[in-house]
Computed example of a mutant assay.
Amino acid sequence: MVVLESVLTCPECGHAETFQMPTETCQWFLECPNCHIVLRPKSGDCCVFCSYGTVACPPVQQGDNCCA
């Protein structure tokens, strides 16, 4: 079963918020609603959910290496 919600934590200000993950595309950028910096994936990660979320993106959950 694929989880479609993930709590992202901003590495700059520590703000945590639950977001719905897209199933058909990667989320490469996300603006922190608190401090407004733009989150980008860490090197080697395919999206912001894999870098800063409590749950990896749907393709990774299904065993793929990266979003397609």
Rank of each mutant, 00 (worst) to 15 (best):
A56M: 05
L30M: 12
K42Y: 00
H36P: 00
C47H: 14
F29M: 15
P11G: 10
V3R: 04
L30P: 01
P59G: 06
H36S: 14
S6R: 04
T9C: 01
C47N: 11
V2S: 11
E24R: 07
H15Y: 15
F49I: 12
Q61I: 01
V2Y: 11
T25R: 11
E12P: 00
L39N: 08
G44Y: 04
P33G: 05
Q20T: 15
C67F: 13
T18L: 04
Y52A: 01
Q62F: 05
D45R: 03
A16R: 14
T25E: 12
T25Q: 07
V3W: 00
F29K: 14
C10G: 04
W28Y: 13
H15M: 04
E24P: 00
N34A: 15
E31V: 12
D64G: 02
C67T: 12
V7Y: 12
V3L: 09
R40A: 15
Q61E: 03
M1F: 11
E31I: 05
C13K: 08
S6H: 12
G14H: 00
H15D: 10
T18W: 00
Y52N: 01
K42N: 10
C13L: 08
G14S: 02
F29T: 13
N65G: 06
E12H: 14
Q61V: 01
P33V: 09
Y52S: 02
Q20N: 11
C46F: 11
E17A: 15
E24Q: 05
P22R: 13
V48R: 07
C26D: 07
T18D: 00
W28Q: 08
M1N: 09
Q61L: 03
P58D: 04
Q61T: 00
T18H: 00
C50F: 04
C57N: 07
C35K: 08
W28C: 05
C47I: 14
P33W: 10
T23R: 06
P59T: 05
G63R: 01
K42E: 13
H36N: 12
T54C: 09
Q20M: 15
V3G: 01
L8E: 02
C32P: 14
P58N: 02
P41S: 03
L30G: 02
C13Y: 08
L8G: 05
C10I: 01
C47M: 13
T25A: 09
C47R: 08
P22C: 09
E5G: 00
W28T: 06
Q61S: 02
V3P: 00
M21W: 02
E12G: 03
E31K: 14
V48T: 10
E12Q: 10
V60F: 07
P41L: 05
G14D: 02
P41G: 04
P58L: 08
C66I: 07
P59K: 05
C66Y: 06
M21L: 12
G63I: 04
E31F: 04
S43Y: 06
T23D: 08
G44T: 02
V3D: 05
F29G: 06
C46L: 13
C13H: 09
P33M: 10
L39G: 09
G44D: 08
L4F: 07
L30E: 10
T54P: 12
V55M: 06
S6T: 15
H15A: 11
C13T: 01
V55D: 11
C46Y: 08
Q62R: 15
Q27V: 09
A56Q: 10
L8F: 13
C67V: 13
G63C: 03
N65M: 01
